[in-house]
Design a protein around this nucleic acid. Structure first.
Length: 782
DNA sequence: AGTCAATCTGTTTTT
DNA sequence: CAGATTGACT
């Protein structure tokens, strides 16, 4: 049997380690480095195994060593092991670490990847069986929504009342649960579009088949269909996958679970590694239940707990462990450590007046640590919601403290990248209507809405791709002369570019396309501040194409691997959300914003009740356990939400931390006027303010004072006036600002401009786009 | 086709 | 409050 995916030639098994491992009676050295539970998890190769790996207990080591062990003992060849992760980053890391263990043989591990990348791989091989062609397109979130918009409109439903985004969410949740249109229980549409959601779902799926496209959910859903409708195909994979390993099992959704279960029916050698206490993706379909139910789903399963923590101090561990015991329905683990540093810091809890002071306090703490020789790379600020990042960024800019924000808008999501990719997609796949619609008038070609509608109708009526419809319509006089000419040029250009496919190098072709289409020029003409950056991004895109053999390979990669590895080597503090911190560790972790409503998030509480609260608590647990040496928690007494000042109550999670491992820091700030209660939680929260004026903070008068403060007006209100001083010192470069009228300045967003007027720290600057009011700390000398 | 004002909407995010 | 999005207008 020839198998294009089998990189490894049949024949003798990989020699090196196998001989070493089996030749001698003594333990192979890779096993000696494990503790007894880890070793058990590695050596229990047959049958279902669930490894409950607490934070910092060597989960990845177990996974990689287990694979090494399977290979070393000759139980499997690299191509016979299915190893699934959630993120590309995790897959990369695993591949790297297995490589360290077994050497170049890791190249043969063709089935190590994310659920989606493996799903695509399988689907492309059997595409015809589910009504697709092997070169089907993978739609991203943006394409999905645009397509749904069209479907909604085609059904004659008011898109305003029933937004496509919402439908996308609904369909996504169905797909997460493994439900294709025929499986959705009637009435499950939640009243969307008066019960038409299901019909829209079916229409959307039909439309995708016509476009020869798949969305992310389909990659798994179609796999399920394939396996169910074609037992012979499933049997082939049963034969192939001798051993299966799954990382972060607590994050699997129902579709992924079903997929695993179908595959595991073969050899039944499935090893899932996860931590129910770190399940934080319930809101996007992950089912903690999958891990809680493992023993029922896989009878005879061996459950192994890894509880020995190698990461954190006993205080950090003690605090996190105690916090998480407040959750019900856990499988239950108790982390412990041998670390006995008598000087280890307790988890620190401190309060601040508002988010600005919080940022100031964190900044001071960071600078102190830095002075003592701690690397910024070993510090992270983990927030619940990304809007919290802003105050830290602002403060760190003022301090000149280097930081990096992890997460945020991704490379592939940028407009210019998506436009460029659309061009490339059409060249690869002329039937990619969504891509065509995206760029048909970008850059402007005088092909407006009317023309596009005409094309659309024609394409629909004749059941042909829009590009072909365009070609046909340029021969008639249905479209205006101007539009017709440019449309004809565009169609001809695509034909020309396609002719070069495989003839010239794909990077060269991409450059030609971007130049000849006028796309590069469009940004060169653009005078806005971010235009140069966009051109750089396009260059970067071309550069990253070099690593691929063909355009096809590159587009596949882009569709599936949407993370950019920001190998930033500078020493900088990381700022990120708690969600994106999972799997990472830092010497020092700052956890700001522990306030009711924010963390736990009110919305989660409203939407998911107790389950939501528990997920928030797990998030808190993840946050604390990221810390190796120090965890510092803050809460602010006042926070501005949607522009309104709200006084806030300390998070209930603070009360759930054990006194033994926590240091509550008394208010050090000169202002604030309240203090944090002593330790001892009888009756009211021990973090309740002892300030008799506390309840005045929510009065209209107080809020007015706060508004004045925000507007820069002096207020006589006690706390506020001091805060203004603080702000002036911190934010303004001086009473009359360090700038002068007529000076040329640069702004991140607006570009270069000339100062027209100065008002304290506020400048009125004449940018290319017109005069704008900006704060002086946001501009630099141009 | 392009600009401006009214209106809405405010978590977490990978693939 | 501020950013994004939409709709009306020119």
């Amino acid at each position: 049997m020839t198998d294009p995916f089998d990189h490894e030639a049949p024949g003798p098994r990989p020699g090196g380690i196998a001989a070493r491992a089996l030749g001698a009676r003594s333990q192979p050295d890779y096993l000696v480095r494990l503790n007894s539970e880890q070793r058990l998890a590695v050596e229990t190769t047959e049958g279902p195994v669930l490894v409950l790996a607490g934070a910092g207990t060597g989960k990845t080591r177990v996974l990689t060593t287990r694979i090494g062990h399977l290979l070393a003992t000759g139980k499997a060849r690299p191509s016979q092991i299915l190893a699934v992760t959630f993120t590309n980053k995790a897959a990369r890391e695993m591949r790297h670490r297995i490589g360290d263990l077994i050497g170049p043989a890791v190249e043969g591990m063709a089935w190590l990847g994310t659920f989606h990348s493996i799903g695509v791989r399988i689907l492309r091989r059997h595409a015809e069986m589910v009504g697709l062609k092997p070169n089907f397109t993978i739609l991203d979130a943006d394409d999905q929504v645009r397509l749904m918009k069209q479907v909604i409109q085609a059904e004659g439903i008011d898109e305003k009342r029933w937004p496509a985004k919402q439908l996308a969410g609904l369909i996504d949740s169905w797909k997460n649960r493994g439900l294709s249109p025929k499986d959705v229980p009637p009435g499950d549409g939640g009243g969307f579009a008066s019960g038409k959601a299901l019909k829209l779902y079916a229409a959307y799926q039909d439309r995708m088949k016509v476009l020869n496209a798949c969305d992310f959910g389909d990659l798994l859903l179609e796999n399920l269909r394939l396996f169910r409708e074609h037992p012979d195909v499933l049997a082939e994979y049963h034969q192939r996958f001798q051993y299966m390993l799954v990382d972060e099992y607590q994050d699997t959704n129902v579709a992924q679970y079903l997929w695993l279960r179908l595959l595991a029916q073969g050899r039944r050698n499935i090893c899932c590694v996860g931590d129910d206490d770190q399940s934080i993706y319930g809101w996007r379909g992950a089912e903690v239940d999958n891990i809680l139910r493992f023993e029922k789903d896989f009878p005879g399963a061996v459950v192994i707990r890894l509880e020995r923590n190698y990461r954190s101090t006993s205080h950090i561990l003690g605090a996190a462990s105690h916090l998480i015991t407040h959750n019900e329905g856990r499988l239950g683990k108790t982390l412990f450590t041998d670390a006995t540093d008598p000087d280890a810091a307790k988890v620190q809890v401190a309060s601040s007046w508002d988010s600005e002071e919080e940022a100031r306090a964190v900044g001071e703490e960071i600078e102190t640590l830095q002075r003592r020789g701690h690397a910024l790379n070993e510090m992270a600020i983990l927030v619940r919601a990304s809007f919290q990042m802003r105050s830290f960024e602002e403060r760190f800019i003022q301090l000149g403290l280097s930081y990096r924000v992890i997460g945020g808008p991704r490379f592939y999501e940028r407009q210019e990248i998506r436009d460029a990719l659309a061009y490339l997609r059409i060249v690869m796949q002329p039937g990619d209507d969504l891509a065509f619609e995206r760029i048909v008038n970008t850059p402007r070609r005088g092909i407006g809405e009317t023309t596009v509608r005409l094309l659309h109708d024609h394409a629909r009526a004749r059941q042909i791709p829009i590009l072909q419809a365009a070609e046909e319509l340029t021969l008639t006089s249905e479209i205006g002369a101007k539009a017709r000419t440019s449309l004809r040029d565009l169609v001809a250009a695509f034909a020309r570019w396609r002719g070069k496919l495989g003839v010239i190098k794909h990077t060269e072709l991409a450059e030609i396309i971007l130049d000849e289409s006028g796309y590069t020029e469009m940004w060169q003409q653009d005078r806005s501040a971010d235009a140069p950056g966009r051109l750089d991004n396009l260059k970067e895109l071309i550069r990253s194409m070099e690593e691929f053999e063909s355009l096809e390979g590159f587009l596949e990669h882009i569709a599936l691997v949407m993370d950019r590895d920001s190998a930033d080597s500078n020493d900088a503090v990381s700022i990120m959300t708690l969600h994106s911190a999972k799997g990472l560790e830092f010497e020092t972790v700052f956890l700001p914003g522990w306030e009711e409503g924010l963390f736990p998030s009110q919305r989660t509480l409203d939407e998911s009740g107790r389950a939501g609260l528990e997920e928030e608590r797990r998030l808190a647990y993840v946050g604390i356990t990221r810390a190796k040496q120090r965890a510092l928690i803050w809460f602010a007494s006042n926070r501005r939400i949607h522009g309104l000042w709200q006084s806030s109550v300390p998070s209930r999670f603070l009360d759930e931390l054990p006194d033994k491992h926590v240091d509550v820091v008394e208010q050090t700030s000169s202002y604030g006027g309240y203090n944090v209660g002593g330790v001892g939680n009888y009756g009211a929260s021990r973090f309740d303010r002892a300030d008799p004026f506390a309840n005045t903070y929510s009065t209209p008068g107080w809020q007015r004072a706060q508004k004045n403060r925000a507007a820069g007006t002096q207020s006589t209100s006690r706390g506020a006036s001091r805060l203004i001083e603080g702000e002036l010192i911190a934010k303004s470069t001086g009473p009359s600002s360090a700038y002068a009228c007529g000076e040329r300045v640069f702004h991140q967003k607006f570009g270069y401009g000339t100062i027209l007027e100065i008002e304290g720290n506020k400048l009125t600057v004449d940018f290319a786009t017109g005069p704008k009011k900006v704060v002086d700390s946001f501009v630099s000398r141009g």
